[in-house]
Structures are given as C-alpha cells and as structure tokens.
Design a protein around this nucleic acid. Structure first.
Lengths: 183, 183
DNA sequence: ACAAAGGTAGACCGATCTGTCTACCTCAAC
DNA sequence: GTTGAGGTAGACAGATCGGTCTACCTTTGT
C-alpha cells in the first residue's frame, strides 16, 4: 500500500539533510526513491508537505536515539556524559540511524525558511523544545540552571562541529559542565 | 565608478540574510538595488561570487561591531558582559548595522551549501575563527578554557535565539560564565 | 575629439522548477 | 467480474532560474 509513502519520506529526509531543501528538486527525490511523480502528489499535497513529513521523521528518529542514549543515568554527571559522548558519536559518523553528520537538520531547515510563522519553522522550534524536555526527564537530580547550560552547550557543540568542523566540542562541554555541577 | 558594485553587495547581503540564498533569484536583487543585470555580471562572475562578496561584507561589519563592543574590558567578567549583552541587543533588533536578527548568516549559509570544500563553506569556517581570535585578544586575563566556554555558549545563544525564539539565552550565558570564571 | 570603461533596459537562451494530467497497469474486495 | 485504489512513465504547462547578449547612453582621461 503506502510503503511508497514511507520510502518517499526516507529518501526525502536523506537527500534534504545531505544537500539542503531549496537546492534539491522533487525530481531528484523521485529518481532516488524510484517512485512516480503522481504517487508523490497523491500522498503529499506539495513539496512543503513532504518537507514537513521529513522533519517529523527526523524528529522521531532523533528523539528515539537520544532517549536510549540518556536512559539509565544515575547522576547528573552520567547524564551529561551520555549526552555529549553521544553527540561525539553522531558527529564522527558512528550513529547509522542519524546518517552522515551535516549539522542539525532543524537548524539547517530553519535557515532556509525565512518566515517564522511557517509550519516548518514552528515545527523546528517544537523539536528543540521536545529535546529539552527529554533531557529534563532524564536528569536524575532536577536543576534548571544546569538544564539551561546543557541545552545551550549542546546547541553550541552541534553548530561548532558543523561550521568549524571541530569535533572536540563535546569533550569540552563535559569538562565545563562537570565543573559547573560541583557548584 | 563602482558604487554600483557596493550597492549590489549591500542589497545582496540584506536580501540573502533576510530570505536565504537559494530561495532568492538574481532578478530580485537587481530589482531591489536598481542595477542592470549586465552591470552585475561585469563585477561578479556568478551568483556564487556575489554570495562570497556578501559574506565578506558581513564578516567585516560583524567584526567591526564586535570589536567596538568588546573594547575596554578590564576584567574577564566585563568582557563576558560586553559580548553577551551585545548579542542581546543584536537579537532584539537594536543594532542597526546588523539588521533584523535572523540567526547567524554564516551558519545559515553553511546550511545551504552542502559541499564542505566550497569557497563559501570555507569562508564561513574562517569567519568563526576570526571571531574567536577577536574575543581572545580582548580577554584581559588569558584563559583558554574560558575562551572555549565563551565561544560554545555564544554559538548556543545565537542558534537558540533564532530557532527557539528565546532571547533570554545571553543572560543565562553570563550567569554561567560568571560562575565558571570564579573556579 | 574621441576612445575606453561603465552604465542602462531588457530580450533571449537553455535548463530546471513545482505541479497537473493522460493513459495504462495491478490487484484486492465485494 | 467489476470497480476503485494505488501504482507506473512521462509529457506537459507555466513560471523562474542563472547567465549572455544586443543596442544604446554617459562619463572621464588624454
């Protein structure tokens, strides 16, 4: 039935994440997925709808991965290690389900869509909030200041890793947060 | 002479920063700048060359602004305040020369150009390194760990402010760094 | 006086874009 | 055994893309 739909979403996510959205045409996705154009437009009303579906897919995959990475932390420090060593694995291409690292898909996509009111921008914002909530629920000892620090450094690490190609960021974050947590 | 060239660069920077690059056509820049297409192509060999010129312009404007913001700090804490309160002004649209805030132009542009070897991606990387160097030279008491923390949090603040529309990030960064600096 | 350089407006080229449509195929349900 | 949903391939429409080019105008240096 609609395993075609799923194949379109998977392909779209891969291609959009790798090459951006505006620079890729629908035809390229059709070719890569081996699906007919008519089929695409029976499942999605527009390219934007496909983008949104790809974002949703990425959101779910990312949160699922993060959830297993963070599970089982007994101390705040352990959670910090789980998170940032996980990011390091992602950056260096060792997390197959996240694909070759090319920054944060949601940041990249926000950058391409200027109107902050669009569904796409709003979805990107919501994703970041879900990530924050997930980290919060795994924090053994609640600490809002620490949570802020973790989230800000996480964003810093991801963008520094991508734009500056500096993969040492996660280790630095761990050291900083370790010092902070002792306060 | 080539005040037309400058006008093209100014317009391109404004439009690209506001709306992204792949989603804007050359004709839109021509219309907004009131310059003929032939003139554009006598000064720039391609759209990519114009993008590079816009990046260079932004690089210079941003570094000049940052330089005056950071000047005169006598303590590391003062430098941190100068930097992050400056970011807050930027985010909230109170720095005319940086335009209405729409994230970091270099991060946004990197997101649109997938090949990491392109001139454009390399320029974005170099910009971030220049910003880091500038902060380093203004740090009254050298401290590499602190410098790392400042740069990571700065990136985190910029991206959080844009994607999550949360302008409270700079104040949080100041508090975190203030605590850290006491270690 | 005149050549060279820089400017204008905009027609034009070939490619590509999103999205629609025709014509036909496959297959499961009732 | 027919109907309807989902599939295929790909032609097509209309717009827009980056970039070239023609034809002409304006300014400046010598």
């Amino acid at each position: 039935m609609s395993d075609k739909r799923q194949r379109l979403i998977d392909t779209a996510l891969n291609v959009f994440y790798e090459k951006g959205i505006h620079s890729i045409g629908i035809n390229e996705i059709l070719k890569a997925s081996g699906v007919a154009k008519k089929t695409l437009y029976t499942h999605f009303e527009s390219k934007a709808a496909l983008v949104l579906a790809a974002l949703k897919q990425r959101d779910e995959t990312f949160l699922a991965w993060l959830n297993t990475r963070l599970a089982g932390a007994n101390t705040n420090y352990q959670l910090i290690e789980n998170l940032f060593l996980g990011l390091e694995l992602w950056f260096t291409g060792k997390v197959p389900e996240l694909g070759d690292f090319r920054g944060c898909f949601f940041v990249n996509t926000s950058a391409e869509f200027s109107t902050q009111e669009s569904d796409i921008s709003i979805y990107c914002q919501a994703h970041k909030q879900r990530v924050r909530s997930l980290i919060e629920t795994h924090l053994p000892i609640p600490n809002n200041t620490l949570l802020d620090a973790i989230c800000l450094l996480k964003e810093g690490a991801i963008n520094t890793a991508y734009v500056e190609r500096d993969f040492s960021a996660p280790r630095k974050c761990i050291e900083l947060l370790q010092a902070m947590d002792k306060l």
